[in-house]
Computed example of a mutant assay.
Amino acid sequence: MSNVAVANRYANALFQVAREKGILIQAIEELQAIKDVVQSTPSFSKFLENPKFTKDQKRAFIQSSFQGSVSSEVLNTLQILVDRKRTDILVPMIKKFVALSYEAQNIAEATVFSAKALTEEEKTQIAQVFAVKVGKAKLLINNVVNADLLGGLKIRIGDRIFDGSVKSQLDRLERQLVTGTR
């Protein structure tokens, strides 16, 4: 079985437990924090995947690192991944869990590319307008500054792209002028 399929199974199991216990939002926050730790500290993953250390040493490390800062459900999932030597799927499992949780709550993530950083008010307005367009209750905005856009916005929500950037408008105009169409 591929690592993606295994990660999906663990994510589904944790999702069901978190939903039953009513801790979806808490679990998302905890898992996002763990993902940040894993991605910003390569030695963390190297330790967990190193065969020189025993399962007990790895479990103790997980316990001391996260106990008190994450729920028992999340901590138990981490311990199971250590026991089954599946720590390599931690980040894909977290991504799948977050996707399942957002889907259950009718939430979507949007990446908004803009020429300058957006204010919180602008992010809120974009979230309100585009949530309706994609049929979601809420949009979580991640702003990426890209000076090449010159102005306007380019918004990616899932596999949909809304491009209202000045750069794309100038590119379209250039194509029309080159081909001679209006």
Rank of each mutant, 00 (worst) to 15 (best):
Q63F: 07
S72T: 02
R86H: 10
M93D: 10
I107C: 09
I23H: 01
I34C: 08
V38C: 10
A60T: 11
N50W: 03
A108K: 14
V74N: 02
S45T: 10
Q32D: 11
Q63P: 05
R86G: 07
R84K: 15
L90S: 08
L78T: 07
N50I: 04
K46F: 12
S43M: 09
S72L: 13
K58W: 00
Q63N: 15
Y102K: 15
L78C: 11
P92F: 04
Q105H: 05
L24P: 01
Q26L: 08
T77K: 08
L81D: 15
E30F: 03
S72E: 15
K35W: 01
S114V: 07
Q63Y: 08
T77C: 14
L81E: 14
S72Q: 11
Q26D: 02
G68H: 04
L31E: 03
S45A: 08
L24H: 03
T77S: 13
K46A: 14
F66R: 10
M93I: 07
L100C: 09
E109P: 06
V82I: 05
Q57T: 03
Y102D: 12
K55F: 06
R59L: 12
I89M: 09
A27E: 00
E30A: 04
L100Y: 02
R59E: 07
V37W: 14
K46V: 12
A33D: 04
S65D: 11
S65N: 11
D83T: 07
Q63D: 15
S64V: 12
D36I: 07
E103T: 10
D88Y: 07
D56S: 11
K35D: 02
I94W: 00
V74R: 04
F47E: 15
V82W: 06
Y102V: 05
R84Y: 14
V98Y: 00
